[in-house]
């Protein structure tokens, strides 16, 4: 959703920001080092703000560990009167829960596989081929980045219906199988692979597919990792499109099912169950994020948005 120039200038700098554990001799940049006392104050202020930022995570953990009776008798309590995993047990035995989880996973797998294949090929072509229509193709990627999702879902739905894909997992996954974000990431990465490598392979008589598969792809690991993570994130957290396409609980993804559960009985929400569900939805992405932060940050660098 941002112009190419902005991307190009931002990316290396963000890469620079990203060493998750700063090197011991990392130079302190931009501003003269503040002295010790103000720095302690600064860290304290940041800690307070960090605590505020994390409050929702605290609430969801503590709330999901409270028993039904506990929540009923004192809904606003910040801590469980007694820790129980009852809500999770109820959640996992809820009719359909396994199905929602499977749906979310299947859709995510289709989306990730599609993005890795489509974006590797398209990004490589945009970076390494000189061809008629290159400008148009690039404008296409920019347009795909910029067209607001909320503006096109009605015709997307009409098309999906006429393809017979309403209420199917394929119908949910297909619009996301070639995300422009992924193509951007791959194009940027492919640009950094030396042309000489490809040229010399051509001189040796290797075909273009062979060059792509045998020379480029093995080098593209980091970009493929970023694409995998970004597209998994997009698919797992996608809400409005699955909400439109999944018309019965058989194709609900986890977020859609969760929203439906909480709204089915909005006056007497079973918060214990709902918050346990929230944890199950949040957890995979948060764990991935903590483990692979670098790739998330690179994804943001390439697009400016998730």
């Amino acid at each position: 959703m941002s112009s190419e120039t902005a991307l190009a200038t931002l990316a290396p700098e963000i890469d620079g920001v990203d060493s998750s554990t700063p090197a011991p001799h990392e130079p302190v940049r931009s501003q003269p080092r503040t002295s010790r006392a103000p720095r302690t104050v600064l860290v304290l202020m940041l800690a307070v703000f960090a605590a505020l930022t994390l409050l929702p995570f605290f609430w969801v953990i503590s709330g999901s560990l409270r028993s039904l009776d506990d929540i009923r008798s004192d809904p606003g309590a910040w801590l469980p009167s007694a820790v129980t995993f009852d809500n999770f047990a109820r959640l996992f035995s809820t009719e359909g829960f396994g199905g929602y989880l499977t749906n979310s996973v299947v859709v995510a797998l289709i989306v990730v596989a599609g993005n890795v294949i489509a974006a590797s090929a398209a990004g490589y072509a945009l970076a390494k081929f000189d061809f008629a229509g290159k400008r148009i193709a690039f404008i296409g990627v920019m347009v795909a980045l910029m067209v607001p999702y909320t503006a096109v879902f009605v015709p997307q739905f009409v098309i999906t219906a006429n393809l017979g894909l309403v209420n199917t997992l394929a119908g949910i996954a297909l619009p996301s199988v070639a995300l422009p974000i992924s193509i951007f990431i791959m194009r940027q990465y492919a640009g950094s692979v030396p042309d000489e490598l490809i040229e010399s392979a051509r001189i040796d008589g290797a075909g273009e597919f062979r060059i792509f598969a045998r020379i480029f792809l093995p080098l593209a690991g980091p970009a493929i990792a970023t694409i995998t993570i970004m597209s998994f994130l997009a698919s797992w957290n996608n809400f409005i499109w699955p909400l439109v396409v999944a018309q019965s609980s058989s194709t609900y993804t986890l977020p859609v099912a969760l929203a439906a559960t909480s709204q089915a009985a909005s006056h007497v929400t079973d918060y214990g169950l709902v918050l346990a569900g929230a944890i199950v939805v949040m957890l995979p992405v948060l764990v991935l994020f903590l483990l692979l932060q670098r790739y998330f940050v690179q994804g943001i660098a390439a697009t400016g948005l998730r």
Partner: peptide, 8 residues
């Protein structure tokens, strides 16, 4: 996930 946070 936005659905999860909205519920919180």
């Amino acid at each position: 996930n936005v659905v999860a946070v909205a519920l919180i």
